[in-house]
């Protein structure tokens, strides 16, 4: 029972690390998906006095994916009744040209500022509307969300590491006597610590299997899918191969490191 409890404390510690790691991964993916979504719907509007060379503008600004000229017809249509045809034609020639600039990804405020400044310096563009206020608020909200999740994940990690160090002391006490006795009969270090490594690996595998089962279950839950659908993004909640390998690797690395610390900290009884 006592041994089971000791196993359980390492398994729970590892499980909480795997849980926070996967949650962090999901948040990262969600933010990326959301940013992609924003990028699709987001565009700058540049106003130029004369027609601009679209190809050279794209070449000069790698962030710009596509440039589309906005037709002034809708505005002019409204003036149709009050102006003569000749005046309308004249107006068409004197009206500034409006361009919609689609970007490759959702820009950071700095990228946006740099792009605006560069556009204003080039050709005949004399105004760039970046809808900065809306853009900034959304972007900062995303960053805040990411920071909160990172702080949360880091706190969980810190608490878990402390928990693991406590576990390390218990293991050191438990295994020290057996390792010393084996050493007195000439057992090499690998043989003395074999039981320890076996336990560490078993605990890591148990923690991984529990985390795997948990995220597999959550990934098939309707509620989780609905949450992502409601904000209009599609996220891989749990990549069976990629995420499993990372979780197994992390669990094994931590528990083996724990065993290595115990072996290095082992002192032979005199």
């Amino acid at each position: 029972m006592k041994s089971f409890k000791n196993h359980l404390s390492l398994v729970i510690a590892l499980l909480s690390i795997l849980f926070s790691l996967q949650i962090f991964t999901i948040v990262e993916r969600s933010i990326d998906a959301y940013k992609e979504n924003l990028a699709t719907n987001y565009a700058l509007v540049a106003v130029a006095q004369k027609r601009i060379d679209v190809k050279s503008l794209i070449r000069a600004n790698p962030l710009v994916e596509d440039v589309e000229q906005l037709s002034p017809d809708a505005v002019i249509k409204r003036l149709n009744g009050s102006m003569s045809k000749k005046n309308i034609e004249l107006l068409k020639l004197t009206l500034p040209k409006f361009y919609k600039l689609k970007l490759k990804h959702y820009p950071t405020p700095q990228e946006l500022e740099e792009l605006s400044a560069k556009l204003l310096r080039s050709q005949s563009i004399n105004k760039v509307e970046s809808f900065t206020k809306t853009h900034d608020t959304t972007y900062k909200l995303l960053l805040l969300f990411k920071t909160v999740v990172s702080v949360f994940a880091f706190t969980v990690l810190l608490v878990t590491v402390l928990l693991i160090f406590k576990e390390l002391r218990i293991w050191q006490f438990q295994h020290n006597e057996r390792m010393s006795i084996m050493g007195l009969f000439g057992a090499p270090v690998w043989l003395r610590s074999a039981v320890l490594f076996r336990l560490a690996i078993v605990d890591a595998i148990i923690a991984f299997l529990l985390a795997f089962a948990l995220f597999m279950y959550l990934s098939t839950t309707e509620w989780v899918h609905k949450q992502f659908e409601s904000i209009g993004i599609e996220v891989i909640f749990f990549d069976t191969l990629h995420d499993s390998l990372i979780m197994l690797g992390v669990a094994l690395a931590i528990s083996i490191l724990l065993a290595v610390f115990i072996v290095l900290g082992h002192k032979e009884e005199v």
Binding site: L184, F185, G186, A187
Partner: peptide
């Protein structure tokens, strides 16, 4: 030392 201890009975 391990080699020696393998041949000792304590």
């Amino acid at each position: 030392l391990n080699f020696l201890r393998k041949h000792l009975g304590i």
